[in-house]
Amino acid sequence: MNDKEQELLLLIEKEGRMSEDKLAKMLDTSLDDVSEMLRSLEKRKIILGYSAIIDWTKVNVSEAVTAMIDVKVTPKRGVGFDEVAERIYRFKEVKALYLMSGTYDLSVVIEGRSMSEIANFVSEKLSTLDSVISTTSHFQLKKYKHDGVVFGEDDEGDHRMVVSP
């Protein structure tokens, strides 16, 4: 991977909606070069997708319920945590899955329409897997910041810290 590709990745990670023309200007390269780099990075599965961050509290639809599930598992000889992780991430409810250090082995992010839907997922699908020893569920109550974006903050107004003697 060359320096221009790394610079391109940093730019689109921060703002994925930039036009290829704007990216070319920022990278001081041609539009064709940017197009080719993007296609190459996508083909090599370095760029896996493009997504928008949406504040669903401002949309008149029912919000999804998000839970973080800490999972303690027994790793299998020869494959470690990979086999059970693959079984877990294949469930449609799973939005993210991480191998963690500490008390629990895996952190699973689940989305559902209700708390009971998530409870059913944990009791009927997740905890029934052979390698799963225990789970602890945490429900997301409010989102303040996600992927570097602050939620609920107005663009107007004075955001300076108040300093008093």
Rank of each mutant, 00 (worst) to 15 (best):
V150A: 02
H159G: 07
T66N: 04
F81M: 12
I118H: 00
I110E: 00
L129M: 10
R87K: 15
S40F: 11
S164V: 15
A24M: 09
F139I: 14
A119R: 08
F81H: 04
D3F: 11
M37L: 09
E15R: 15
S116K: 12
E15P: 07
D105R: 01
Y89A: 01
D70C: 11
K14C: 07
V163A: 02
A119F: 07
I88Q: 00
T74W: 11
D70R: 08
I12Y: 04
Q6Y: 14
V122S: 00
D21A: 13
L141P: 07
R39E: 10
R39H: 11
P165C: 05
M37S: 08
V79A: 01
G112I: 07
A24E: 08
I53H: 06
K14W: 06
V132S: 00
N120Q: 02
S164H: 10
V132I: 07
F151T: 12
E13L: 13
K125P: 05
E5A: 15
E7L: 12
L10Y: 09
K142M: 09
V163G: 00
M115I: 10
D55Q: 06
F151K: 10
L141G: 12
F81W: 06
E5R: 15
S123K: 03
E111F: 06
W56M: 15
E20D: 09
I69C: 03
T103S: 00
S137L: 06
K143I: 12
I88P: 04
T136A: 12
D70P: 05
K76F: 06
N2R: 14
S62D: 09
T29I: 12
I110G: 00
K72Y: 06
E86S: 08
E7S: 14
K45F: 09
E117L: 04
V71H: 00
K92R: 07
L129C: 03
T136D: 04
L129A: 01
N60R: 14
A67F: 05
K95C: 03
S131Y: 03
D70E: 13
F81I: 14
S51M: 11
